[in-house]
Design a protein around this nucleic acid. Structure first.
Lengths: 100, 100
DNA sequence: TGCATATATGTACATATATTTATATTAATA
DNA sequence: TATTAATATAAATATATGTACATATATGCA
């Protein structure tokens, strides 16, 4: 019984998606968003990182659909896109906390 | 109710772990291993990639504990380390196959 | 021991990417 | 309309990383 082997395009897309979890700044943003919607200013304040740095990473998170956003006046509110994101964070944490 | 925010070291470790899924070659290796143990030669034949390329990526997969291995004579047999790996692949596939 | 096979390591190079600084855009409000 | 606040974009730079090629190591066997 053979597992499903993704075709090339799926492999490329999957790598791009999962790679997005592979940066500490993006992970910190995602963990913040586990608490719910946050705007750019609050994220950059909470993480003590410059606003362009946050906007840059949010753009990547948006494009790979890890987050969604809505505009309200001058603010843009970001949140996790769906349950897949939290699940991957949870499984990842389980893995690194496991004794080797 | 606030979510658990990982400390810096956990963020670094988690990013390193998840980043490992972010390369097409490594993903192809992992999908092969869903079928069960494979040795280096068979992997490099199946993926039509040079043996040093496979060994290089296996080293990374080993260090981040995505795979385990056992030596048998001249051969080294690799397999997925635990259920976390397959779960992340599955959730990732669900995500990219979801209509945007 | 000598040789072939299987796997790992090291180096070099090209490419990708995270961050900083500066600037642009957009929206609210005085 | 002028100004301020919030966010996004652009350019520059430094760092990281994947691959190819050459070489090393290790094991089995004649």
């Amino acid at each position: 019984m053979h597992e499903y082997i993704p075709v090339d395009e799926e492999i490329i897309d999957l790598a791009a998606f999962l790679k997005t979890f592979g940066d500490p700044t993006r992970l910190r943003i995602l963990f913040l968003l586990l608490d719910g919607e946050q705007n750019v200013h609050d994220i950059s304040t909470a993480l003590e990182l410059q606003q362009p740095t946050i906007s840059h990473q949010l753009k990547i998170l948006r494009h790979l659909r890890l987050v969604r956003y809505r505009k309200e006046g001058r603010s843009v509110w970001y949140s996790l896109n769906d349950e897949h994101i939290a699940k991957i964070l949870t499984i990842g944490m389980e893995h690194i906390q496991e004794p080797s």
